[in-house]
Design a protein around this nucleic acid. Structure first.
Lengths: 132, 132
DNA sequence: CAATTACAGAGTTAATATATCTATAATATC
DNA sequence: GATATTATAGATATATTAACTCTGTAATTG
């Protein structure tokens, strides 16, 4: 069980957009090049962030992507959920008499992780590092 | 990103072994049947728990698996690590100037989850439910 | 209109999960 | 000691998912 590389691309891209202008969009070409990934593939990933309402895209010349919310709003969990989905990490499909107590423990553990990812905002990291 | 079904099999099997005798081993046939999985496959999974020192196997007639430690010792994390490995859930392989601050956040989140899984022992659940 | 950019859908390749099959080794019981 | 029973190992098979690539379309700017 690992987070996908797509999630890594999404997180790094979002961090760049937080540090970039909220007016002038950044082209996927530039975003992709700095991460060593193909523009078409990154675009496919970013489209999911657009649909999640985190960023917006501008077509045409000088187009690209930019934040659509204030940067303080966006949490790690938002981004991860947009890419990986919101399904539980652990799903017991056995038919128990009662609820599966193992699943209950796993769910609690997952919630501990998610709580931390929800508390951490992108803005907490912005400008803290040389990106990618 | 999901926990594998193998992890689910391992957790349920361990819970059964905790509730079973520590002297008379339980055959994989029985363990497999109650979970609706093939004995050879489950055996392959359980062998990893044997190598991790959690359970021991007995060959031959009336053989099977039984706990090798006291049941209070074994945590969820022990079992999960034995099956899924101990690698980080998130690995940023970009070459940043400094350490990747995104990875740092992800690692903290993962540690929150692992802490909970390490604090929860199998014994906490034993006899609490009708198994599988 | 022409150039540039994002979007959508199909298809490809590689890796991983989820098994299955067969043969071998160990043990208890007769 | 022979036989039945059980775990183990290794090779192989199948399905699912990840990680892309390719091609064409739509939108926007100048």
């Amino acid at each position: 069980m690992r987070f996908s590389k797509a999630t890594n691309y999404a997180l790094h891209t979002m961090l760049m957009l937080v540090d970039a202008s909220t007016v002038k969009p950044v082209g996927v070409q530039q975003l992709a090049e700095s991460q060593g990934v193909s523009p078409t593939y990154l675009s496919k990933i970013l489209t999911r962030l657009v649909k999640a309402g985190m960023i917006e895209s501008v077509s045409g010349v000088n187009g690209g992507y930019r934040l659509s919310r204030t940067k303080d709003d966006i949490t790690f969990l938002d981004i991860i959920h947009a890419i990986e989905g919101t399904a539980s990490l652990f799903e017991c499909d056995f038919v128990h008499g009662t609820e599966c107590s193992i699943q209950a423990v796993m769910k609690e553990a997952e919630e501990k992780m998610e709580r931390h990812l929800q508390q951490t905002k992108l803005a907490d990291l912005a400008q803290k590092q040389t990106q990618v």
